[in-house]
Write a protein that binds this DNA or RNA. Sequence first.
RNA 1: CGGGAAGUAGCGCAGUUGGCUAGCGCGCUUCGUUCGGGACGAAGAGGUCGCCGGUUCAAAUCCGGCCUUCCCGACCA
Length: 413
Amino acid sequence: MYWSKYFIPTLKEVPTGTEAISHQLSLRAGLVHMLTSGVYSYLPLGYKVLARVENIIRQEMNAIGCHELLMPALHPIDIWEKTGRDVTLKEIMITFDNKKGQRMCLGPTHEEIITDLARQFIKSYRQLPVTLYQIQTKFRDEIRTRFGIVRACEFIMKDAYSFDRDWEGLKKNYDLQLQAYNRIFKCCGLDVIVVSADSGAMGGSISHEFLVAAPIGEDAVWVNKDDGQTIKDEEGKIPQGSQWERKVAIELGHVFQLGTKYSESLGAVYLDEKGDQRPMIMGCYGIGVSRLIAAIIEVNNDSGGIIWPKEIAPFDVEILAIQASDENTMSLAKKYYEELKGIGMDVLLDDRDESAGRKFNDADLIGIPLRIIIGKRMLTNNQVEIKIRRSGQVIVVDKDKVKEEILRLCPSL
RNA sequence: CGGGAAGUAGCGCAGUUGGCUAGCGCGCUUCGUUCGGGACGAAGAGGUCGCCGGUUCAAAUCCGGCCUUCCCGACCA
């Protein structure tokens, strides 16, 4: 992609009324734009990041045998009445009447909808177990939004739902999800803290939260420095001993063993070998995908801007042509661009006719892991520079050795 | 939903004891000079001063109501 033909509206100054680093940087780097409180557009660069995060999640979900589907955001309220959650989730549910006078809501989550699907299509133990998931937009009328996309009214979530014939099956699926979650967050460059938690409005018995330590977090967890044991920080549960450290953290994922709460109230039953009718044993597994992006930025930045982990970065390499008007510079830049694209890399070429300082600062801000800098000064010695965004390390290379050097550096990022 | 702060050009801000045609920086347009860390000169475009009402000869400025946004608490991915 040529920067001059792309759409990256970077901001030089910190937008008014922003506190969190991730909020400031996501706006300044041209990733997102606020329409109203808690409602954001994903601009091309942010949308690319979103797609990459989604694909990591997809790969891991598919790898453990889950099947992707897409459920509607628009729900008739009567399905919610069957579980009573039209009342318990009333505060956050966006409801309205359609023109037929039917009471509707925008889905804040999807247990009811998926359970209704299972009820209609899963009739036999032979069809179990099965896990379905989607990456989809949720609507929650948050009274208090926070820090841009950290807590929004419209946000993107991955939600998976497992159906088993018994609790043993559920525990297996639950463990698979726990393992997949650990891989997903690791791939996103995050050190997550896993802690067992209350299941709240979701219902069920066992549940675990996945959190990442960050000062803007809305949760807190006690971590035992000796054995890694964790305890959710809630009133009355203060562990004794100096080995316990309290960490403020952002909740990124939450998994639940639901049991039969939804299958019973919605009649999702199957027939076992004996012909007996039994409720399906369910689990649900959520990741706040848009929040995950904010968390990644929150823990991967410096004074210059974002430092993307390579798996998440909107581009693999940025080529910074200092003098876009100089023919030697640009022909070399285009050569690298084609070469790197040829080996499957996603490349951004800053070919704008802007001052060097501005291009350097924009490059730091949007945080592409590797940068090739082509300028007249180095070119007189037939050299160009490669800069690693995270470490700031600059490597001077012969202009004919750029591809090799990029390939050498990639695995170490 | 309680407590606090703020709304003036796309962005960041000044102006507010009521008084000329509402200003500055950045960005944007045109021309020229520049070109290794947000360059320089010249000429331009861009505004319901959040909204409604009140006071006044006169309101961005004073008064009342409302709206919006942000931050802190209770709740969530």
